[in-house]
Design a protein around this nucleic acid. Structure first.
Lengths: 148, 148
DNA sequence: TATTGTTATACTCTATAACTATA
DNA sequence: TATAGTTATAGAGTATAACAATA
């Protein structure tokens, strides 16, 4: 193994993720003024319909504070609605408003086109292989963190 | 393509990179109190010996402000030495001091062991393939950013 | 005029925990 | 007592640009 940053796996991964993340943020942040956390929240709601805050947290890798703040801003901007869950009044149920739906509907094809552009570089085998490699690495990295 | 975050490529990549990055930071940050930027600077100097600031910038994806601040703290902590370049007195030449060398020498094997643990999940073919895939994706992502 | 590196400033993110309300 | 969600606050990181020294 080589410490030279350019060939050091964690460095390559960090640089690639940062680059891809910026390429996506050029769409949802620069053109649509959403933060990354706001984008994750609306993307989850767009895909799943109404969700409880706890489920959004589970699906987005955001913590409750990040979701709370993203939701407050999205509600203020009229993109989503927050309502109580009659089954357990500690929960909040989140739902995109029409303006939010429309906003996400404008963003999604642009973001998908960018992802497609990235993945065009890979054939079907390579895409499958990438997915498998990510799965293995993710599970090992999670193990490392747990061990501390 | 699927917008569902869990199967959305940029999301998987961001989560993986974040996890790996934390696993590495557990070593250099929690045990050795270096920031990510400081770690990149000392790693580059450890690998290459004395370097001009501009070369550190080129090799670390950090900008001049990040390097300037990282270097100021590393110098304050007695880990590196900053001196002038007689050929062009605008440049600063950076060099690890013995204390810095020793510090990095303690960190490197721990970090390498963690990377080895991650990559153990992959056979030789898979490692090569990962490297190739990263290269293709990085070049496409950079293209996207340039286009804006 | 352009480049290297430092400093200033404002802004955003993050981490931790205290707090309110419900259960 | 425990959980869902909000608020407070301090610290870290980021972005932009002004600036001094040198070329």
């Amino acid at each position: 193994m080589n410490l030279k940053l350019q060939s050091f796996f964690p460095y390559q991964l960090a640089v690639l993720a940062e680059t891809v993340s910026r390429a996506m943020a050029q769409v949802y942040a620069e053109r649509f003024e959403l933060s990354r956390d706001e984008w994750r929240v609306v993307a989850a709601l767009y895909e799943n319909g109404a969700m409880k805050t706890t489920d959004v947290i589970a699906q987005t890798t955001l913590d409750k504070m990040q979701v709370s703040r993203a939701v407050a801003r999205l509600e203020h901007d009229g993109l989503l609605q927050r309502s109580e869950d009659s089954a357990d009044r500690r929960n909040k149920v989140l739902r995109l408003l029409p303006a939010g739906q429309a906003q996400v509907a404008r963003i999604v094809p642009l973001v998908q086109a960018r992802v497609e552009f990235l993945l065009e570089a890979l054939d079907a085998d390579e895409r499958r292989s990438l997915e498998a490699l990510f799965g293995k690495l993710q599970s090992r990295a999670t193990q490392l963190i747990r061990q501390g």
